[in-house]
Design a binder for these strands. Sequence first.
DNA 1: CTCCAGGGATGAT
DNA 2: ATCATCCATGGA
Length: 319
Amino acid sequence: MQLIEISAPDFDLEKTLDSGQVFHWERVDNGFMGTIGDLPIYIEQHRDLLRAWIADSSIECLKQSNSMKPAVGGAVAHYFALDHSLENIRQSLPRDRAMEAAKEFCRGVRIIRQPKWECLATFICSSMKQVAHIRQISLALRKRLGEKRKISDRIVYPFPSPERIGGSSEKELRECALGYRAKNLLATARRISNGEVDLERLAILVDLDLHDALCQLPGVGAKVANCVMLFAYERLRAFPIDVWIERVLRENYFPRTRKLNVARLRRFTQEYFGEHGGYAQQYLFHYARKNKVAGGLGSNPSNKCRATPRPSLHDKTSA
DNA sequence: CTCCAGGGATGAT
DNA sequence: ATCATCCATGGA
């Protein structure tokens, strides 16, 4: 075991890992066990300091660079986006009532930089699933198809490659509780593993083109594309609209608008929340989910007393 | 038991 | 273009 310390002011590890953007970190002792890419790692936060432990076996793989600790420290800092100026980002967000409450609640929450395939695959599995179950699916996939790694006396499973998932079967994926999502995950994995699509190369595209390219993949629509853009492609303007966020937007910004199509909602989010809209979205999402409120008036998602049935979400418009 | 979940694809208006 | 329906599965 090797300890690396990283300075991390204005950062909340626990809230960040619990905010529904990443699904494979497990609470262990006073910290979290997980992986950054293929690197198994255990991380604790002590005020403005992160303490990360990696296995001695991981060090062998990194021996080529004679400066192993700075490399790992840099990888951790990059993954958690410790370079984002949350002060500037908060400053750039709107100052309405809902946003202010979310900002305060989400102090220290960062949009992390996830590996592209891991993020894409996980969000393909996320459709019509609660956060708890997405975590369960991620674990099942990693246990079933991932390569077992040891750190101290614990075992972790990095996310399996496109080749590994593409080389499995729909039946095997269904056994990971993916249901109808298995077909989509398999098809997308194969498009990537056979070289038809290169997720790294898509990074050169501008937002609109990246959004279109991602939506070509089976199981990827506007919402998942925006999640992947935000969490894996550093597109901080991307604003995924799921059922929670749709409720938040309706109740806070369009309290009594009858006909509010998704195109109009999307136009509003892009203009109103601006260049760091993804942060606004994540803060509003996490605040609403953790406090079981959409608006500030104690309304909640399981409210049975709404006058009209909640319209279904068809988020087809381009970002 | 019922209801719903960080939706997408498809087919009918 | 917009809307309805179906798709598996498990937590609440």
